[in-house]
Design a protein around this nucleic acid. Structure first.
Lengths: 190, 190
DNA sequence: ACCCAAAGCGGAACAATGTTCCGGTAGAGT
DNA sequence: ACTCTACCGGAACATTGTTCCGCTTTGGGT
């Protein structure tokens, strides 16, 4: 029942698993821009194998972080159900989103890289997370807690941008600055 | 009187000027990450000449934008003197800062690049602009218009981050999102 | 147990960049 | 005109991403 379409060779499955593990380790050690050669070496395979399994680097990044992104997607409705107010749900969820970004070395920067290398990553994040953010923002706007002239896209990009380079700079606390931004969303301000 | 220390050869002066012009043009066309070879070609010199005049790419970027950064530095005190309140001065000056970043293709991203390539650029911006920002923020905090638990550094980094990728994305208006962040600075919020 | 077609692999090879280095050129003082 | 040297140009090296193709391994059939 688990095998549906194209049964793959055993070595192919083994290599894919090894690549995912190697990529995860490399991303932790050197960020999501870790050289392909290094990932291949860690996995004990040739670079050709990396590209066969993951045609673009973004595919590899998505595969490595899929679980955590999906967890963030699923947390959206839960925040809305559990938080006392829609604004509380929004801030709670944005906290989770920020955690996702700042704990993954270089992820936020990759998300904003204009290199075509990460296009698929960008699309994936947008596809999965934007609807969630839109839902939360709309609820907060409807309840009058938040100004209603902002697109969810702009808020997400803003939060994402604020997370860039948040690791490796002890003087910059992305969570705090995101907190300021979210405070600025309140209807009263401006 | 103009020549003080080391009188340089005529071709050296000519080349430096040509390089600055070529770099400015290349930055407009292709962003501050324009290939060194392209800049050299535009200037009609070899790559070696680029590196002799500007040991790092950051030096070239700084040289090209120095005037505009200095203008921003000088605008700080003027904003404080002319605006009705310190908070008004702060917002006014941040507008200028944002203009500087979003109109220079890729500058904001370069400022945040963790590549050593742009270290000197980062330092220069910090050296020149951070004192100005600190002065404005302190004035606004003293007048009670703005919360006082934020470092100028964090605010500047936040604003700078929000400007990353603001060109070439019609759905994202950095000025508006920076406006939200600045609104979040008001003492009342949070 | 053996064989073979195809799936899959490895890494050489190519391309695009940044950066260094040195043989040769040309500016400027005499 | 001569010479000395600051300066130039670009070949050469390093580091990446990406493609391509000859070789190996696997899995199924005999």
């Amino acid at each position: 029942m688990a095998e549906d379409a194209p049964r793959r060779r055993a070595d192919a499955q083994r290599n894919e698993k090894a690549l995912l593990d190697a990529a995860a380790a490399a991303f932790v050690a050197a960020g999501v821009e870790a050289p392909v050669r290094e990932i291949a070496a860690r996995a004990g395979v040739g670079v050709g194998t990396v590209y066969r399994h993951f045609p673009t680097r973004a595919d590899l990044v998505v595969a490595v972080y899929r679980h955590q992104v999906e967890a963030c997607v699923e947390a959206g409705p839960r925040c809305l159900a559990e938080a006392p107010t829609p604004y509380g749900a929004l801030t709670r969820w944005i906290d989770l989103f920020v955690d996702l970004l700042v704990t993954k070395h270089g992820l936020a920067a990759a998300l904003r890289s204009d290199s075509t290398q990460f296009d698929a990553l960008h699309s994936y994040f947008l596809d999965r997370l934007l609807p969630v953010a839109a839902r939360l923002l709309e609820a907060a706007a409807d309840s009058g807690e938040v100004r209603s002239d902002l697109e969810a896209y702009e808020v997400m990009r803003g939060v994402g941008n604020l997370c860039i380079g948040a690791d490796n700079d002890p003087r910059y606390d992305a969570r705090r600055v995101v907190g300021v931004l979210v405070a600025g969303l309140r209807a009263g301000a401006s």
